[in-house]
Structures are given as structure tokens and as C-alpha cells.
């Protein structure tokens, strides 16, 4: 499957990847109020890299990702688990949501919260798990 992509696919992938990345972050952040969330966003970013993988090869995809997907997977689990801990210091049960809404002038309200951190964990786990599988399969192919 090495570099099987056509010129059209490569060019498309190169342009689509940053857009899809941005889109996934958008979906992740708006998830609490509109359709979206960490799970969907994780799948979107995985698809983006899978597309890139088809257009180029495993080595280039890995290089672009910057980190081993298994590391991202573990990091996601860690973040998700840790996000449940802060409420304990406020005398609340594990995983009680904590909220710090901030007004950003000219943008509106930004809702920082522990559920958001948790959702980022979900995002990383899904991304890490899917890419672990996809890259392993692709590598076995090569």
C-alpha cells in the first residue's frame, strides 16, 4: 500500500487534514451544547489521519502525528481519570462536574469545566485506539 495514493488524493489529503483537525476540535468543544463531543471528534480526527495514511504511508503518518498512538491512548485514559479527582478537594464525590465560566470579550462565554477535560480524555482515547489499530494493520500490510 505504499504511496498508492494518486496526486489528486495526496493534494486533497494535505489540504483536508488541517481542516479536519480544526473541525474535530470544533466538534469537541461545542459538544456540550450542540451535537458533537469527544467521541465523535476522536473519530473525525482518526478518519483524517486514515485518509492521510492512504494518500502517503505509515512512516509519514507517524511522523505527522508526532506521538505514538498508544501514548495518546494512555494519556487520554490518564486525563479522563484525573478529571474526576478535583471535586474530591471540594468535598464532592468523584466525577462531580466543576465549572469555571469565563467571559471572553468579543467572543462570549467560555465554559471551562472538568467535564470538558474529561471529554478531551475521551477524544484522545478514541483517537489513540483507532490509530493504534489502523497503523498496526497498515504496518502489517507493508
Amino acid at each position: 500500500m505504499t504511496s498508492m495514493g494518486s496526486l489528486i488524493l495526496r493534494t486533497t489529503a494535505r489540504f483536508l487534514l488541517p481542516l479536519l483537525l480544526l473541525f474535530s476540535v470544533f466538534i469537541l468543544l461545542r459538544g456540550h451544547d450542540e451535537p458533537g463531543g469527544g467521541f465523535i471528534a476522536g473519530l473525525i480526527v482518526s478518519t483524517a489521519f486514515a485518509l492521510y495514511l492512504f494518500a502517503f504511508d505509515v512512516a509519514r503518518t507517524r511522523e505527522l502525528m508526532g506521538a505514538d498512538p498508544r501514548f495518546l491512548l494512555g494519556l487520554g485514559l490518564l486525563i479522563a481519570t484525573l478529571s474526576g479527582i478535583p471535586p474530591i478537594f471540594f468535598g464532592e464525590p468523584f466525577f462531580t462536574g466543576l465549572w469555571w465560566p469565563i467571559d471572553v470579550p468579543g467572543f462570549g462565554e467560555v465554559k471551562l469545566s472538568t467535564p470538558l477535560i474529561f471529554d478531551i480524555g475521551v477524544y484522545l482515547v478514541v483517537f489513540g485506539a483507532v490509530m493504534t489499530i489502523v497503523l498496526a494493520l497498515a504496518e502489517a500490510e507493508e
Binding site: 456540550h32 451544547d33 451535537p35 463531543g37 470538558l116
Partner: peptide, 17 residues
Amino acid sequence: AHGRNIVNVILVDFRAL
């Protein structure tokens, strides 16, 4: 839970565990 998307609220808050 300060969220209007009930699916996501359930996932990350109500049933986070």
C-alpha cells in the same frame, strides 16, 4: 450540568464513571 446537548451531558457528566 450547563449543557444543552443531553447526549454529551450524560456521557461526560451524569454517567462519567
